[in-house]
């Protein structure tokens, strides 16, 4: 194209002789490796060894299951409304329990979820919280949609997160 006549960039500095033969640079690199080998290591041998995050960690969202085996969720649909990724589907139905309604269906599409934690923040019942579970792998799209069977987690397994929320939210 005419007008596009910017001259090619000139090299500002040519490599020095030492750099050109590489050997000193290689020695420098190897010595760093050697020094690091004797320092304490931080890498974990996953999956043999597992990372257990703190309460502030946002793993996959789960539903809180009370001690009596019932969900806390009243199917208000606020999490579904606030979810920026449209990951949550809730279908309410009537129950005889005091709170009148419960989620007949509660599904989170883990392929849509972006782990933002908005659902947890908006929930009026502390019924959906972010867990420590980060191990999510599926071989097809259908498996990525988690129903109540996979979402409900007993409340005592979630105590860390609930304490964190009560202290810092």
């Amino acid at each position: 194209m005419s007008g596009n006549n910017i001259p090619p960039k000139k090299r500002i500095k040519d490599l020095t002789f030492g750099e050109k033969i590489y050997i000193p640079e290689i020695v420098k690199g190897l010595s760093l490796t050697l020094r690091t080998m004797f320092k304490p290591k931080f890498t974990m041998e996953y999956p043999e060894e597992k990372f257990i995050p703190a309460g502030s960690y946002r793993g996959r969202p789960v539903l809180v299951e009370e001690k009596n085996g019932e969900e806390r969720c009243v199917a208000c649909g606020l999490c579904s409304r606030v979810c920026p990724a449209l990951a949550i589907e809730v279908q309410a139905a009537e129950t005889d329990r005091e709170k009148e309604r419960y989620p007949e269906k509660f599904e989170i599409n883990m392929l849509r979820c972006i782990f933002c934690g908005f659902c947890e923040e908006v929930c009026p019942e502390e019924a959906i919280v972010m867990s420590k579970d980060y191990e999510l792998a599926f071989s097809n799209r259908e498996d990525a949609i988690y129903g109540k069977d996979k979402l409900l987690v007993p409340v005592d397994q979630l105590q860390d997160r609930i304490d964190f929320l009560r202290n810092y939210k």
Binding site: A75, C76, G77, S80, R81, A92, A93, E94, E100, R101
Partner: peptide, 9 residues
Amino acid sequence: FRFKARVWD
């Protein structure tokens, strides 16, 4: 219609 759907959906 009770509990069938949220109006905003």
